[in-house]
Simulated scan of single mutants.
Amino acid sequence: MTNICNNLFFDAEAPILYEVDAHIVGSSPATRRMKQMLTAVSPSDAPVMLSGDTGSGKERAATAIHHASGRKGQLVAVNCAAIPGELLESELFGYEKGAFTGADERRVGLIEMADGGTLFLDEIGDMPLALQSKLLRVLESREIQRVGGREHIAVDFRLVTATHRRLTEAVADGKFRADLFYRINVLPVPVPPLGDRLDEIPELIDRMLRDHSEQNTHANLPHFAMDAIERLQAHSWPGNIRELRNVVDRAIVMFPGRMLHAAEVDNFLLLSETDGAPNGKAPGAGIAVGDQDAVLKLLQEKGAIDIRMILRDMEIGMIDGALQVCEGNVTGAAQALGLQRTTLIEKIKKYGIKKP
């Protein structure tokens, strides 16, 4: 009887587990635990809170929950930290024509767009207190009012939130409502940092390259040799999976079709944890002073080095990486890169870089 029950349980969960596996790469103990929790919570309508370091893959986990839940509506993702507080309310609730200056027509809000689907509120800890109380009313009543409107609109959505903050401390400090915290923290799921999943780096790189190839069918992708993988696994990854994605993106741009070894990883791909430069060198240096082996290797492979192209590609990679880390915030990216904001804007336009 036990075996029969176990088989029935497995069969019932199989489609859910398939959806989770389709979105979450890896088989380390930390990732397996996360997948088990995602598989367990996905069928429910109860709120899920994803916690983990910035860049650890919380949005991908939210995507897995949505697709495994079977909900027919869309997944609507909102980064509460990326939208100014005074605009976040109108983005979430929508507004009626004439509600405020510039409201020339009715606009449906993101909560209403998530009706029948999943609303993912990333960085919920950055939501202003006044808006927290309004969100709590929506969760209790399952109704919204557009800004400037009187109509009560019924909404049916699954709420998934994410944060890298310790919300219990924010509650204690009066920066986050305790009643909202208990309302959204029904099913907590921790998302492990990349430092706990180092064995998965080859799988993650393979998935990233495959995703890029599907979007760019004629792309000439790089290849990572074993010593390059070992070098990546020795890195501390303060930026987690987002940082690894930036490394892969730089490799795609700078070394199309090339076999990459540890030297290329050190000199061109990894950013220093202290100054944002490759391997701790001056930005754009690429190859350390006196590193004759790296220079000879490039000369043997290419016959000549186009240093202007190398510096350009590195600058593009660094700007793109800073924008990713700062989630599209140009001011933050400029500070991280040591540039004036106007200078960074000019470079973004010059290189045609798309903000995330």
Rank of each mutant, 00 (worst) to 15 (best):
G94Q: 01
L139N: 05
I305W: 08
R71G: 09
M208L: 11
L8K: 06
L311D: 15
H212M: 04
A334E: 01
K302F: 14
K350A: 09
G26Y: 06
E327K: 07
A114D: 00
N246Y: 06
A22Y: 03
L135A: 02
Q300G: 14
R183N: 03
R146I: 07
E346V: 12
E59L: 02
D179P: 04
E91K: 06
L269F: 03
A22C: 07
S69D: 09
K134Q: 06
F100E: 05
N216G: 05
P47Y: 04
D266T: 12
V295L: 15
A61H: 03
K58I: 00
S141D: 15
N185H: 08
I205L: 02
I307G: 11
V48S: 09
A14P: 04
A288I: 04
R166L: 10
T331I: 04
I65C: 08
Y351F: 12
A61S: 09
Q215I: 09
V48G: 08
G321C: 03
G149R: 05
N220S: 10
A178K: 13
E151Q: 14
E89V: 02
E86M: 13
G73R: 04
R312T: 13
Y182R: 10
I305D: 10
T2N: 13
I16H: 01
A103S: 08
L298F: 13
V325C: 01
R165C: 07
V191N: 08
L87C: 02
A82Q: 03
P193Q: 07
A62L: 03
L269P: 12
E230V: 04
A234R: 11
A282P: 02
L50I: 09
I241V: 15
L194Q: 03
V108C: 14
V247K: 02
I16N: 04
G57F: 02
M226C: 10
L110I: 11
E169D: 15
L75S: 00
D45H: 06
D126H: 05
M113K: 15
L198I: 08
V41W: 07
H152L: 15
I345L: 15
Y18V: 07
S51Q: 15
E96H: 10
R250P: 11
V76M: 02
T54S: 15
Q74L: 11
S133M: 13
L180V: 09
T342C: 11
Q132T: 11
E96D: 06
I252Q: 13
T274Y: 14
V265Q: 01
P15D: 00
G332Q: 13
R242H: 08
E315F: 05
E243T: 01
R71V: 10
G94R: 01
S56Y: 05
A262K: 12
L121T: 03
L38M: 06
K297D: 11
I24H: 01
L129G: 01
A82G: 00
P190L: 10
E13R: 12
H67A: 11
R250W: 11
G26C: 08
K354C: 10
A225T: 06
D291F: 12
M1C: 06
V108A: 13
A114L: 00
L311N: 15
I111H: 08
V41Y: 07
V325R: 06
I201G: 00
M1G: 14
P192R: 04
H67T: 11
G303W: 09
P238E: 03
R183C: 08
L159Y: 10
N6D: 07
L135E: 05
E200F: 05
P192Q: 01
L271Y: 09
P43Q: 03
I83E: 01
